[in-house]
Amino acid sequence: MAQKRIVKEYSELQKKPLDGMRISLPSEADMHQWQILIDGPKGSPYEGGVFTLHLSLPTEYPFKPPTLSFKTKIYHPNVTNDDKGSMCLGMLRADEWKPSSKIEAVLSFAKALLLEPQPDDAVEGGIAREYKENKKEFIKNAKAWTKQYAKK
């Protein structure tokens, strides 16, 4: 069941790509693992960087939510600062996931999060605090990381 839906969504996104995103399959045979390159959105401290994301679709998709992680290090309150780079998206939580949610919506949401972090929903408390209390410093750090890790 998952296969059809995934193939469909993939081909939709290939046909009409999201702005500033390139989607590919690391292994052409495995539709369940997607690789996404996101350009840092204009106006965000991530501008100018390219971030690699990994989207993993479970066997039970769409009845179970996919998981999204950053392969490129990013200074962001909602992305864990470890080798997993897990991203906290409300809509991806098991109890909030809707089978009708599409990957496109997930990706759009992720991009929106780059533009506007949600410090109240953070996984990196330190960065969230900095974002709230000392935005200048946050922007400086985020830019530095972007330059260091997400160079084009």
């Binding site: 998952a2 296969q3 292994s27 045979a29 495995d30 369940h32």
Partner: peptide, 8 residues
Amino acid sequence: PGAVDQSG
């Protein structure tokens, strides 16, 4: 690998 029936 290489099969079309990947389930992930």
